[in-house]
């Protein structure tokens, strides 16, 4: 009889990294579906290529570096889908390569692979594309079902006023995954039910944007429903690796994301600031982690007071 011997605990929860990543992929399905509905079948081409390319690059990097193969943990697939969903549907295919290489090769694998990237790989890839190819990256197609028209994001100063219903359903210009708020909320609900993410970051992020907008007299509801805010708050800012682990750290981080987003949207020369806000807070994350929140058991004040 061969007995295996190891350190306790001898039971483990069924959750694995791969299952978490699969859940994230599932939670993104409504956004992909909404993309197809709003922007047509090219959505599948963009998201598909981005996903396969990210997985291929992950595989190749690990292979060349002679490291343990990690493409099976699906984290590269998540990065690929996220990147694809944050591109305009009209993006020329060759440009996607730039985003994927930045995300997987430069930001993720060069820093040690999963768990070691200091910013969200998908967002880093998107930002490099945004600054390199500003025209192609902001040439949004407004879904009209009759003729697809290229327009600016509703956040741009010269944009035509979009109704709140259109904003909610996603019938506005924007990136593939960010316009349909129903799809994003479905994804959020799934992530919460499966306990993949805690509601702290999305709530604090969106709440901060709403309060800050109200405080400076902007249209809060419009701010919430337009651009990539909801998509970023649900799928990007909640990335484990680049957000704080403790609940108060998460609050600080999410509030920071909210403040920077509104500052960029209302006071900077850019129409949209979600990507930059999240990446900036990603970079600040190690600093936030150094703030001592809460005390170890027995080091704080006890509720009942000292010994009677």
């Amino acid at each position: 009889m061969k007995l295996s011997v190891s350190s306790s605990p001898h039971l483990r929860a069924p959750v694995t990294t791969e299952r978490i990543m699969r859940d994230v992929l599932i939670s993104l399905l409504p956004c992909v579906a909404a993309g197809v509905w709003l922007f047509g079948l090219r959505t599948l081409l963009v998201v598909g290529i981005s996903t396969l390319l990210c997985m291929f690059l992950e595989f190749t990097c690990r292979f060349i570096m002679k490291r343990e193969q990690t493409v099976g943990d699906l984290s590269a697939a998540v990065t690929g889908v996220l990147l694809g969903l944050t591109l305009p549907v009209s993006i020329p295919i060759p440009l996607i390569i730039v985003g994927c290489v930045t995300a997987i090769v430069v930001v993720k694998q060069m820093f040690g692979g999963l768990g070691n990237n200091f910013v969200n790989p998908a967002l880093a890839g998107r930002i490099v594309m945004l600054v390199s190819f500003p025209t192609q990256m902001t040439g949004f197609t407004t879904p009209t079902w009759v003729d697809a028209v290229t327009t600016a994001t509703p956040l741009a100063p010269n944009a035509e006023a979009a109704s709140l219903l259109d904003l909610f359903l996603g019938r506005v210009g924007g990136c593939i995954g960010e316009t349909c708020k129903i799809a994003i909320l479905l994804g959020l609900a799934y992530l919460l039910i499966r306990r993949v993410i805690s509601p702290i970051i999305p709530l604090c992020y969106v709440g901060t944007v709403a309060l800050f907008s109200l405080a400076v007299g902007a249209d809060a509801l419009f701010q919430l429903l337009s651009g990539g805010l909801l998509f970023g708050a649900v799928f990007m800012a909640t990335d484990y690796v680049t957000s704080p682990v403790g609940k108060w750290g998460k609050v600080v981080y999410a509030v920071g994301c909210g403040l920077i987003t509104v500052l960029i949207r209302l006071y900077a020369s850019l129409p949209e600031g979600v990507s930059y806000a999240i990446v900036l807070m990603n970079i600040l994350c190690p600093l936030i982690e150094r703030i001592p929140f809460g005390k170890t058991f027995g080091k704080g004040k006890s509720k009942e007071g000292k010994t009677v």
Binding site: S4, S6, H10, R12, V15, T16, T17, I20, T70, D73, S75, G113, L114, G115, N116, Y240, V241, S243, P244, V245, G246, K247, G294, K295, T296, F297, G298
Partner: peptide, 25 residues
């Protein structure tokens, strides 16, 4: 029941922090 899964990289999900009854990291 005794089978173990392979150890993979920490993804900083924070589950261990939330689970620690001593509020450790």
């Amino acid at each position: 029941e005794a089978a173990t899964s392979p150890t993979t990289a920490c993804i900083r999900c924070g589950r261990c922090v939330a689970a620690c009854p001593m509020r450790l990291y």
